[in-house]
Design a protein around this nucleic acid. Structure first.
Lengths: 146, 146
DNA sequence: TTCAGTGCAAAGACTTTGCACTCAG
DNA sequence: CTGAGTGCAAAGTCTTTGCACTGAA
């Protein structure tokens, strides 16, 4: 993994700095879809010199390289996902978590793209689909404690 | 229309101020999915005393009342749509416009909700689907003048 | 060695808050 | 009349910019 990301950065003409590797690893090891601030908090302990600014810049770079996907869930922050393939997310209105949904994103994209091409003549190349609701644990707790 | 929005506000226990009516009308009369700033600009001419702040507050109120839908297209701003029903949007990467896509949002929602309920046990009640690509006019102009 | 990348501080964009004034009901 | 709503200014949150220093290649 470490090797992979370093290699991919270099192949793209970027330097594989420890900061970049650490940020990528953090993202790759979580399913929480953290925002820049959250990534920073997590890394700051073991990497005290790291600046929030670098996290922002790095995540931006990763997004441009297609290593990472940016999610807008309507919270007013950018979350990031180490899985850059189009896929579906669920934002829980109770606990605030953002979960991956097991739905074939590529298939959805293909179908949407065809439909939209045929009906409006528009060219679709990506999508962002967020479902809003309540995750399993929150919806089973009935009485919304939040 | 004027009557409708006034009435709906009053029925919900809110005052039907000229500002609120004007803001609603502005939104209802456009397909551009404007942000608060854009709504403000449009109204400021004929309504010089209106403040941007009021636009923000009003749009927030409308959203809470379900009169309006908030869109996150990943531009870092909130756009608003006078159609509160779930539906699909296309964000053009060339011209920046956000278009409505003629796709039955309610049907999509229903299918998604069923699938997700059966597979993960999550409760889905709304969605936000943004397609990214190039609108008809931009994709026919080939050479991205961007 | 060299310049892409980092870290710091400051600025910027969008949005919210606080408070006295105003006008819809 | 009365308090919900407005407008102004100031503050807040998230993100970006500018610049000198550092360390990956």
């Amino acid at each position: 993994m470490y090797v992979t990301i370093s290699k991919r950065l270099r192949e793209a003409g970027f330097r594989a700095t420890p900061q970049r590797v650490a940020i990528y690893m953090t993202l790759a090891q979580t399913k929480a879809h953290p925002c820049a601030e959250r990534v920073y908090e997590k890394l700051h302990r073991e990497f005290p010199s790291l600046s929030l600014n670098t996290v922002y810049k790095t995540l931006q770079t990763f997004e441009e390289l297609g290593l990472v996907r940016r999610l807008d869930t309507g919270e007013g922050i950018c979350r990031y996902d180490a899985n850059p393939a189009p896929h579906v997310h669920l934002a829980c209105k109770a606990c605030g978590r953002v979960l991956d949904i097991d739905y074939d994103g590529t298939y959805i994209l293909e179908r949407m793209a065809n439909h939209v091409k045929e009906n409006g003549g528009h060219e679709v190349c990506d999508f962002n689909l967020i479902l809003y609701g309540y995750c399993r644990s929150c919806s089973s707790q009935e009485a919304g404690s939040n």
